[in-house]
Design a protein around this nucleic acid. Structure first.
Lengths: 228, 228
DNA sequence: GTCTCGCTAATTGTTGACAATTTTATCCTC
DNA sequence: GAGGATAAAATTGTCAACAATTAGCGAGAC
């Protein structure tokens, strides 16, 4: 149907991966959907080579599974996968918060202030909890990941874990209204980071992630036993 | 020169990646060495397709860098990269130790006992510190990573971080004699894990990784200012 | 003598065809 | 009618050739 996005520079495989990631995370391609190479190739009007490369990229980032000699599918995350995801996320984001606190400068508090003020207006506009799945929540965590000054850590979070988290939320459109609570937790974390208190920042971040997991797990249980 | 390894089943790309990884981590291919696709293709008597796939795999695991339209090289880890590596490792291994402690069963202590006894004999045979770069140290951490019961965490450690750590040690053949100290730290960690004390296990593991980093950093400084 | 421009050579990116494996459908047997 | 073996279709894995981009080199001008 649609041809390739717009920018014609750069590698074809990366543009393909980008487009496919968008389609998956926007819910147009549901978990379990087959990703046949020939179908994708003629849909994007390219050869199978770049398609293969793009699928490998998405496989590495965890939103596509590839079974040799069988094909690629949009990944279906089990509850065990989700738990593992949040365990790793807790460890990495707590570390990021600690590192960010250790490297905090005088401008840090102001940066957080502007960001959180904007988020507050978003939450006020949609008080039932659009914050958590909107750009706001993701922004906050991305900012801290960037402030950690650790290339590898940032890549793991932004490039691997967050897409999988988004994929996890594709099936559960409306996250329960944790927006206002999450925003409050963010403020406390921001205080600790800006204040240079690494230990508290790490602790609060870890608790924040665990709260998020608890809320999500409750939703997963609510939807009854598609357990696997 | 050498043809492909031995087992002829499985994907060609994965065998190539395996062979290349061995050559890199054994020091036959030094950091910065070019990995031309045509050269590799005719060396392993395969086409460029699987070679490309293998290079992408190694790129994702962090021991090869790929510059678009320029080519692949064995990755050169800067000191900043090394620091980032150990920061992420500390976070993930501390989490692994905590999870392993939480899931410890009655047999756990016995498993550690056998493993550490064998390591003790290795250290006794090479008291100047072969332990750290030998299979012993790696084994211990891999066992804990496996005991955590977290597929994702185990993959990050075994498939991404450890190869990079090995690559880091290619240039510094003889790690200073931290063998006996490391073994002692391992024993204390094993105790905490087997005893189900997650908090202490995580703390000891984090300290253990930091000690390892301190020793390595001292070596890096010793080799003078090849800074970057 | 140094800098810039243009060209040549080499390497990567992409393409389409061939081979091997898996999946599916059909037919036969029990 | 159900189960299993066989064969056909579809899909992935691999190959070799073409196109595009990049890096290196040399000539020429200032």
């Amino acid at each position: 149907m649609s041809t390739i996005s717009e920018t014609s520079r750069g590698l074809v495989a990366e543009r393909l991966a980008e487009d496919l990631r968008d389609e998956i995370l926007s819910g147009r391609l549901l978990p379990g959907a087959r990703l046949g190479e020939v179908a994708l190739a003629e849909r994007f009007a390219v050869s199978r080579g770049p398609v293969r490369a793009a699928l490998n990229l998405l496989n590495e980032s965890g939103i596509v599974t590839i079974v040799p000699n069988s094909g690629a599918r949009v990944r279906e995350l089990s509850r065990a996968d989700a738990r593992a995801l949040y365990e790793v996320r807790a460890a990495l984001e707590a570390e990021a918060a600690m590192l960010a606190a250790a490297r905090a400068s005088g401008e840090t508090a102001a940066q957080f202030g502007a960001l959180l003020d904007q988020h507050a207006t978003e939450v006020a506009a949609h008080p039932e909890g659009a914050y958590l799945q909107g750009a706001g929540d993701r922004d906050f965590h991305l900012v801290i990941a960037g402030m950690a000054g650790n290339e590898l850590l940032q890549r793991y979070l932004a490039r691997d874990l967050y897409p999988q988290l988004s994929l996890l939320r594709v099936k559960h459109r409306n996250v329960t209204g944790r927006g206002v609570k999450a925003l409050h937790e963010h403020k406390r974390i921001a205080e600790a980071v800006a204040g240079g208190d690494a230990e508290v920042a790490g602790l609060l971040m870890r608790r924040h992630i665990r709260n998020s997991w608890t809320a999500l797990e409750a939703q997963l249980s609510e939807k009854a036993g598609d357990g696997e």
